[in-house]
């Protein structure tokens, strides 16, 4: 069974979320094969989970001043600052060998590709339920999943570098907590490939390793990765969804 592997590189947050949804719709409609996409963010972006309020979680004024986008995701979970990272999304129809019915089971199965890819970079990592990957006792990857239109969509990030001062300057944090204390606490919980390896790998190096890791982890399930591109109509649909949904106040401020 083939899994299309697309490396679409950097894009703004609304377009990244628009392409994820466009691919989901195309796979659901049968016009696109199951797809694994690697990408990054330019400009940097804060995303919030489906059930979060953008206004509650994000200092939108600080984001504007810093040239950072802010977008609400179609997946649950928390606020994420996307800057020095590599992101993936995978879209599979229900019944696919990599899409078991159980949500927790599918997180573990799909994250196996990331764990293998991190291993190829020299990082010993392990999946931690519900949806994290940890290395050196700290979180290095967060993942989120939704199921819609008879498909599973999971996306997640691996941190290449980590600028906690910048991250906390963009998020709204409880007033009673001091920024310094929050940063110290976060340093205990979160890490990046840069910290783990003593050097920050670039996107291209991380993309190569993750692609090889996904291939190694999914091969035994009878899934073979095949390099491909987004079709022009998928990209056009992604742009449309980005403009009409993920750039709109109606979507981003709905909750």
């Amino acid at each position: 069974m083939r899994l299309r592997l697309v490396d679409s590189g950097p894009a703004p947050g609304a377009l990244n979320m628009g392409i994820d949804e466009a691919v989901l719709r195309a796979v659901a409609g049968g016009s696109s094969p199951p797809t694994l996409r690697l990408y990054s963010w330019s400009p940097a972006c804060v995303t919030v989970g489906y059930f979060q309020s953008l206004e509650d979680e994000v200092d939108l004024e600080a984001c504007r001043a810093a040239g950072v986008d802010a977008v609400r995701r179609i997946t649950g979970g928390g606020a994420v600052f996307h800057e020095a990272e590599i992101t993936y999304s995978i879209v599979l129809p229900e019944g696919h060998p990599l899409a078991p019915a159980g949500i927790l089971e599918s997180y573990e199965l799909l994250c196996g590709g990331l764990v293998a890819g991190l291993g190829l970079l020299g990082v010993e990592a392990a999946f931690e339920p519900i949806n994290d990957i940890r290395a050196g006792g700290r979180k290095v990857s967060g993942n989120a999943q939704t199921r819609k239109l008879g498909c599973l969509l999971q996306h997640g990030t691996v941190l290449l570098g980590l600028d906690l001062e910048k991250m906390f300057s963009l998020l709204k944090v409880p007033k009673e907590k001091l920024a310094g204390k929050l940063i110290a606490q976060a340093k205990e919980r979160v890490t990046s490939l840069g910290s783990l390896l003593g050097r920050e790998p670039g996107y291209a190096e991380a993309a190569r390793a993750l692609a090889a890791g996904f291939a190694a982890a999914y091969g035994p399930r009878g899934v073979e990765l095949e390099r491909g591109e987004l079709r022009a109509d998928e990209l056009a649909e992604g742009r449309r969804i980005a403009a009409e949904k993920f750039s709109s106040e109606a979507w981003n401020r709905r909750r």
Partner: peptide
């Protein structure tokens, strides 16, 4: 409105 960083399926 119940907001937060939880997951609910289906949303």
């Amino acid at each position: 409105r119940v907001r937060g960083d939880f997951f609910a399926h289906p949303e």
